[in-house]
Design a protein around this nucleic acid. Structure first.
Length: 264
DNA sequence: ATGACATGGAAACCATGA
């Protein structure tokens, strides 16, 4: 199975690039974030022509997550039990079963600033996600939690840790939230950077940050043991961040061989 | 660097992003 995750920063604005990328990369399952796509406006027909089914969860103007699959897409769940809101739950999580793997596409709240209510929301959201994942992982299922986690796991995942010393994305509490997910039995599938030493997945649009490779690794793939043990390769597709009109995030592509499932 | 871009919806600016 070729599994990918990509914060596209508007599926509508990115559609030509998304379609080219799907055709060239040929992933079996794709988790998208920040689709920013109103309900009913997802380009289902366009990706359908490439053989993908779609499950999407929309918010209107902000957020938005989706799963594309060409290997089956069943048992779709939007959000999760106990999901916190701001104040109402937002379109930040969707899960489905694809070829026997439980796939999650998540867009973790940004947090904005450490003293902002949005930061407490972020931590609460992480805690509720952990509780929702616990039974699936404990049951020994192949699970992949993919998306924009809005946390850099280590200082090596930030181009200049000193600049972020008082910011979100690097605080001990946010990193502890990631650790709590790993403690369930999820492994961080660290991708190959393809260029430079750091597998960054996000570069600010401004000030030539991508050109200077001043980025962050905040998009992650967390895999349960039955899946993680079969990972053959993973990479950051930084080519997709180049050129005119890119997202500010690059996709992560993971090649894995999940356990075979009995087909009914 | 309290900036820089980019997006969508509303309105010819603003909230949001990280």
């Amino acid at each position: 199975m070729r599994l990918a995750t990509w914060n596209v920063n508007s599926v509508k604005a990115r559609l030509p690039r998304l379609l080219d990328w799907l055709a060239g990369t040929a992933p079996d399952v794709v988790c998208l974030q920040e689709t920013k796509c109103p309900d009913g406006a997802f380009p289902v027909a366009e990706v359908g022509e490439l053989g993908y089914e779609v499950a999407s969860h929309s918010d209107g103007r902000w957020n938005g997550v989706a799963i594309l699959s060409r290997v089956g897409l069943t048992d779709v769940t939007v959000g999760f039990p106990g999901e916190p809101g701001f104040p109402q739950p937002e379109a930040r999580a969707i899960s489905a079963t694809c070829a026997g793997v439980r796939i999650w596409s998540v867009y973790v709240p940004n947090g904005r600033a450490v003293d902002d209510p949005h930061y407490a929301y972020k931590l609460a959201w992480f805690a509720a996600l952990r509780d929702a994942l616990e039974p699936e992982v404990a049951a020994g299922r192949p699970v992949a939690v993919c998306g924009d986690f809005n946390v850099a796991p280590t200082d090596a995942d930030v181009w200049d840790p000193a600049l972020f010393a008082t910011s979100t994305h690097v605080t001990p509490a946010e990193r502890a939230a990631l650790a709590a997910l790993r403690d369930l039995g999820l492994s961080d599938v660290v991708p190959t950077p393809m260029k430079g030493p750091h597998p960054y997945t996000y570069w600010d649009y401004r000030a030539g940050m991508f050109h200077q490779n001043k980025g962050m690794r905040i998009d992650l793939v967390y895999a349960s043991a039955p899946l993680a043990t079969t990972v053959r390769a993973a990479y950051v597709d930084r080519e997709a961040r180049k050129g005119k009109g890119p997202s500010d995030h690059a996709p992560i592509v993971v090649d894995t061989d999940p356990p075979a499932v009995d087909t009914p």
